[in-house]
Nucleic acid binder design. Structure first.
Length: 542
DNA sequence: AATGCACGCCAC
DNA sequence: AAACGTGGCGTGCATT
């Protein structure tokens, strides 16, 4: 079966539709379109940006659209009404191939390329862009060769870049009045400069802290001042970290911990944050402007730039609210990483435990561990390389019950300690580590790198599944008028849709999850249950 | 005044 | 309970 993230070449004898190279000229005001065939450019045509949809080759194009960078081209094509189905983002795929294939230095890669500030390849200023693009495509396809995983990853990563552009253009529905109400509820009313801009409840806590420590001039925002004052008051701590404070019994602890929690909310997701990142779009809708960065994390996870949108505090998620007549479909993949591990390790027993909505509870029901918490901590310990506490206590039991899965992460860890590269399921490859000495310090560094590679294979494979899931969701909701992807968070998506079609979207999101599992893992019997809730605002999910 | 680092906390 | 992965970000604080 072929689908949207699978751009494996058609077999010999099949007529392959030509790839279409698309290049922006004059900073995007004009667009060059040409067929790219075996590294050569055929039938180049240049259009005004707004007219690029007139190029009949781009209408219902069954081949790949090839570009250097989705951020420069996708917005133009989307504005022109071009349907984007299969793509090759040469910039992102190059990054993958450079690690996976230890790829040629840039001179051998192509004379028309140069390395930009991020160490990535881009067009040399004097290069003819379409021939260079054709050359890059040819070299990339040759590097991928017959590796079906890498081919799928190239397609998925490239489509992810399109989804990222669409998400960023759409924005996340945001209700500033609700946000303000949530902040006032948590922090108190805003006050003036006399209290350093602290909301009323924070200022009250600052007073309690000063009182409890007997230091009327203490600035609770200064870790050094607070640390010194704590020690003078007989609280013997090495830092002001919350977990350390909680080990002590003193009247200052409770207000101090509460203050720090409020302070975090105030600075990270408070009024200034909303002022900076909420915008009113051309249709009068208030949206958070989120710039997604596909592949921004070494494992293949996405990052965001600027807004901190990947870590919006749960306390204010109620401000992310559906617009009139709409609902949010909030969907998250249950225990995604343990499931990714089961699949990549071909661990039938762990996959069987995951046949149902709650893999952790299944471990309890099967007598592997005593409680759901033990299952969760143990599994996370296996994924992260935990060696203490609850994780260490149950790891041996997990190892006996699921030897294949545990051997897979152990082997990834050992490979990292030996300075070897490891690969995700589709073939994203870990970077090489910095050098370390053959002494105790070096040993610690080696073990730390082993924990990184241990996690890399699982986190990276989960990220690949998420790419396939998103591509499927995108495709499934395309014909649902008014529905749009508005958020992505590693293992969670939010779609805003008209109320009367929200349940249909929820079903489509669940189906896309199942399809993503089959796309990546074929017939291996691993399930990817998705909890999808139709809600008015984000805080109502799960 | 600008810059870079360390801390601490948030998210998955 | 407190050491175990990937990140972003705001702040204080030291350096230049």
């Amino acid at each position: 079966m072929r689908n949207s993230v699978d751009d494996v070449d058609a077999g010999p004898g099949d007529a392959r539709p030509p790839d279409l190279g698309v290049v922006p000229l004059d900073r995007g005001s004009r667009i060059a379109v040409a067929a790219l065939v075996d590294g050569a450019v055929r039938d180049e045509r240049i259009h005004a940006a707004a007219d690029v949809g007139q190029d009949e080759r781009l209408r219902a194009h069954p081949g790949r659209i090839v570009w250097q960078d989705a951020r420069a081209v996708a917005p133009v094509l989307l504005d022109a009404g071009v349907a984007i189905d299969r793509v090759r983002d040469v910039r992102l795929v190059h990054r993958i191939l450079a690690e996976a294939r230890g790829l040629p230095g840039e001179e051998r890669w192509s004379r028309s390329l140069r390395t930009d500030a991020e160490g990535l390849f881009s067009l040399a200023p004097e290069a003819e862009p379409l021939p260079a693009l054709a050359e890059q495509l040819r070299l990339q396809d040759a590097a991928i060769g017959g590796d079906a995983g890498l081919a799928m990853l190239a397609g998925a990563e490239s489509m992810g870049a399109v989804v990222a552009v669409e998400l960023s253009r759409e924005g996340l529905p945001f209700d500033r009045a609700r946000h303000d109400a949530l902040l006032v509820d948590a922090l108190g009313e805003r006050t003036g400069v006399a209290t350093a801009g602290r909301p009323r409840r924070m200022e009250a806590l600052a007073g309690e802290i000063r009182e409890a420590l007997g230091e009327p001039a203490l600035n609770p925002d200064s870790p050094q001042e607070v640390l010194r004052a704590l020690r003078r008051a007989g609280v013997d701590v090495a830092s002001t970290a919350r977990w350390e404070l909680r080990e002590h019994d003193h009247p200052v602890i409770e207000p101090l911990v509460a203050y720090k929690r409020m302070s975090r909310l105030h600075t990270a997701n408070g009024w200034a944050w909303a002022q900076r990142w909420a915008r009113v779009d051309e249709r009068g809708r208030c949206r958070l402007a989120i710039e997604y960065v596909p592949g921004g994390v070494v494992t293949g996870r996405w990052a965001t730039e600027g807004s901190g949108a990947m870590q919006i505090a749960r306390q204010i998620r109620g401000a992310v609210a559906a617009e009139p007549g709409m609902r949010l479909v909030v969907a998250d993949a249950a225990q995604l990483e343990p499931r990714a591990l089961a699949a990549l390790a071909r661990d039938e027993a762990l996959a069987e435990a995951g046949r149902g909505a709650d893999l952790y509870q299944a471990l309890v029901d099967r007598g592997v561990v005593d409680s759901r918490d033990h299952a969760k901590f143990g599994m996370l310990g296996a994924l992260y390389g935990g060696t203490t506490g609850k994780a260490a206590a149950v790891l041996p039991r997990l190892g006996r019950a699921y030897p294949r899965a545990m051997a897979a992460v152990e082997s990834a860890a050992r490979a990292g300690e030996r300075r070897e590269r490891v690969r995700t399921w589709l073939g994203r490859t870990s970077p090489l580590p910095p050098r370390w000495r053959d002494d105790e310090r070096g040993g610690r560094q080696a073990r730390a790198w082993g924990r990184f590679t241990r996690n890399f294979v699982v986190q990276g494979t989960a990220a690949e599944w998420a790419l396939a899931w998103m591509a499927g969701v995108r495709r499934a909701i395309r014909d649902i008028e008014g529905a749009a992807l508005v958020c992505f968070l590693h293992d969670e998506v939010i779609v805003q849709a008209p109320a009367e079609r929200a349940e249909e979207v929820a079903d489509a999101v669940r189906e896309a999850a199942a399809l993503a599992g089959r796309t990546l893992f074929g017939g291996f019997p691993i399930e990817f249950p998705v909890q999808a809730a139709v809600v008015h605002d984000w805080s109502q999910a799960k």
